[in-house]
Design a protein around this nucleic acid. Structure first.
Length: 289
DNA sequence: TACCAGGGGTAAG
DNA sequence: CTTACCCATGGT
């Protein structure tokens, strides 16, 4: 079915570092696994996305998952009309990004894995975890293809350190097992944590061995949809240092700080990529000479 | 407080 | 090809 929606760009969302199981199949064509379901999406126009499900499934799951009821246009317009040149550029560049409402346990484990890793490495680990411990899903498109759901807490709690090391999670093996056990055994109640305030959820998450400030904030933002949270990773830290000389006024964007952080992150990373491509091309030219 | 292990991916040499 | 660098957390 076709979704006509402003500020909804599937390429930007897939490349914004918030999700690890959205993969490019072709130009403007992506796959996604969530809620134990396989989905394909095609960007048909600036405000037009084709989505491979019926209206019932869309209303039940994906409308909420893609946060399509929230008005991003108002925030974008505010930033575009604002006096901050970096944020004006960042908002214009990433205006199709939305903060997905991803599943809590998947976010918890994914962001534990994410520490000290780049995005391709995180994706490889997450995919390996799903393949080894997750429930198989039969594709609705091609009945010979099997996809794997993200493991449940009890599925993952059965993993051994040795098995996890083979999946290249490194020293995070123990963090993963203990986190999965905490959820499976109820020390960390998934139903409760959804009803907590940001601060309560943050404190509860930090009780888990291997979850520090940055990872806890990412889980709050992406797994519990506390969009006022502003996780600071090295990219954001660099922006706060170099662009703002550590005088960025977060209070101006209170309530939407997590979205603003996404625009900053996505803009900065792509600036860097463009610079790398440029230097790579220049390098090739000089080699030819 | 400051520093470092840790390991896979990527950029640079 | 090899080497250097990156990075969030917990431990010293």
């Amino acid at each position: 079915m076709l979704i006509h929606k402003k500020n909804f760009n599937i390429e930007q969302i897939a490349d914004s570092g918030q999700c690890f199981r959205m993969n490019q199949l072709a130009e403007k064509h992506y796959s996604l696994i969530a809620f134990g379901r396989y989905l394909e999406l095609i960007q048909r126009g600036e405000d037009l996305v084709e989505i491979s499900c019926d209206e019932e499934e869309f209303a039940e799951l994906w409308q909420d998952y893609f946060d399509l009821s929230y008005d991003y246009t108002q925030l974008i317009d505010t930033l575009l009309a604002g006096e901050d040149p970096f944020l004006r550029s960042a908002a214009a560049f990433g205006k199709g990004i939305r903060i997905l409402k991803q599943e809590f346990f998947e976010m918890m484990i994914s962001f534990i894995i994410s520490q000290n890793k780049n995005i391709p490495a995180i994706k490889n680990c997450v995919e390996a975890l799903c393949h080894k411990y997750g429930t198989p899903i039969r594709s609705a498109f091609d009945h010979n293809t099997i996809y794997y759901a993200f493991p449940t807490p009890s599925q993952l709690a059965q993993a051994s350190k040795e098995e996890l090391r083979e999946l290249k999670v490194g020293y995070r093996d123990e963090y993963i097992i203990r986190a999965a056990q905490a959820v499976a055994e109820g020390q960390l109640d998934v139903n409760c944590i959804h009803s907590y305030s940001y601060k309560e959820a943050f404190d509860a998450l930090k009780q888990i061995h291997g979850i520090g400030d940055k990872v806890a904030n990412c889980i709050c933002l992406y797994g519990l949809h506390h969009i006022q949270v502003f996780p600071i990773d090295v990219w954001i830290k660099r922006i706060l240092d170099e662009v703002y000389q550590n005088e960025f006024n977060l209070k101006l964007y209170e309530g939407n700080a997590g979205i603003v952080q996404q625009y900053m992150f996505y803009f900065m990373r792509n600036q860097k990529e463009n610079q790398n491509e440029k230097t790579a091309k220049e390098g090739m030219k000089s080699k030819k000479k």
